[in-house]
């Protein structure tokens, strides 16, 4: 992942590490899922260029799923 994208994603990562309610995790997971699906659609159906944005989003979603699992235990 390009360093610039890593910097952008780090703000989301910091926030998600602070998240302390399953409701927030679920809301964020749903929103990022919409985001991910939208951009995937733009790439696959409309020829949009993927400069790593999909990868960055996938990284955030993976972290969200991990935190959700931790909070539900």
């Amino acid at each position: 992942m390009p360093e610039s994208l890593g910097t952008i994603v780090s703000a989301e990562e910091f926030r998600l590490h602070l998240a302390n309610s399953p409701q927030q995790i679920i809301a964020e997971l749903k929103a990022f899922l919409v985001y991910y699906e939208h951009h995937e659609h733009q790439v696959e159906e409309h020829g949009a260029t993927d400069n790593g944005g999909l990868q960055a989003t996938a990284r955030i979603m993976a972290l969200l799923a991990e935190r959700l699992e931790q909070l539900q235990k």
Binding site: S21, Q23, Q24, I26, A27, E28, F32, V34
Partner: peptide, 28 residues
């Protein structure tokens, strides 16, 4: 932009009490 989370509450009085509706992120 990218989706960011927020808490939503409603009331019939500007000073509350507020009733939590839930947490949104992005267009919710």
């Amino acid at each position: 932009g990218a989706p960011e989370p927020y808490q939503i509450a409603v009331s019939r009085d500007p000073s509350g009490p507020w009733r939590d509706l839930g947490i949104g992120s992005g267009i919710t």
